[in-house]
Amino acid sequence: MTADGTSPDSPQARAAKLLRRPKLWLMPTILSGLLALLLSLLYMGGIVSPQSDLHDLPIALVNSDTGKPLTGQKQNLGTQIAAAITSDTTSDAADWRQLNDRKGHKRLTPQPA
């Protein structure tokens, strides 16, 4: 038994020995802190100015609504919504590209290398 009432092989005794030896834990602590700082700076660098980074971002709009139009309507609801989105010329936020279902699925599916 040690002076504090624990056996030399207990986890508390081993942890206390490690805490008294800063050469063992000081370097990993500093490296972990620097790595966390580096990763946070890299993340912040990518999102600090989204307006300029995402200007004219191409977005694919795929209308796969193949249902019949509602009663009294000439087009189905999906076609009406797609037309309303792509005809909005007041906003400079996105570059909408209307694709058919096959082209949209092909572009969104990862291609093998």
Rank of each mutant, 00 (worst) to 15 (best):
D4G: 07
D4P: 08
D4A: 04
G5C: 05
P8D: 10
P8M: 08
P8V: 09
D9C: 03
Q12F: 13
R14G: 06
R14K: 14
R14N: 10
A15M: 14
A15R: 04
K17R: 15
K17C: 12
K17D: 15
K17E: 15
L18N: 02
L18E: 03
L18G: 08
R21T: 13
P22I: 12
P22C: 11
K23L: 15
K23P: 09
K23R: 13
K23C: 13
L24P: 11
L24V: 09
W25L: 14
W25K: 00
L26R: 02
L26S: 11
M27H: 11
M27Q: 14
M27R: 09
T29I: 09
I30M: 12
I30G: 10
L31C: 04
S32M: 04
L34C: 15
L34E: 14
L34D: 13
L34P: 04
L35I: 07
A36D: 10
L37Y: 00
L37T: 00
L38F: 01
L39Y: 06
L41I: 08
L41P: 02
L42Q: 06
L42V: 05
Y43S: 00
Y43M: 07
M44F: 14
M44Q: 05
M44G: 02
M44L: 15
G45T: 07
G45M: 09
G45H: 05
G46I: 02
I47T: 13
V48T: 05
S49D: 15
S49H: 08
Q51W: 14
Q51S: 14
Q51P: 09
S52M: 02
S52G: 00
D53S: 06
D56C: 07
D56I: 06
D56K: 05
P58Q: 04
P58V: 03
I59F: 01
I59K: 01
I59R: 04
I59T: 01
L61V: 10
N63P: 03
S64Q: 00
S64R: 02
S64V: 11
T66W: 03
T66H: 07
K68D: 13
P69F: 03
P69V: 06
P69K: 11
L70D: 10
G72H: 08
G72L: 09
Q73V: 07
N76H: 01
L77P: 10
L77K: 00
G78A: 10
G78I: 01
G78M: 08
T79D: 11
Q80D: 13
Q80P: 06
I81E: 01
A82E: 11
A82R: 02
A82I: 00
A83N: 07
A83T: 10
A84P: 08
A84M: 02
T86E: 15
S87A: 12
T90Y: 04
S91T: 08
A93S: 00
A93M: 13
A94S: 02
D95H: 10
D95F: 08
W96Q: 04
R97A: 09
Q98D: 03
Q98M: 04
L99S: 00
N100D: 15
N100V: 10
K103G: 00
R107E: 14
T109Q: 04
T109F: 04
P112C: 02
P112F: 01
A113Y: 05
A113C: 09
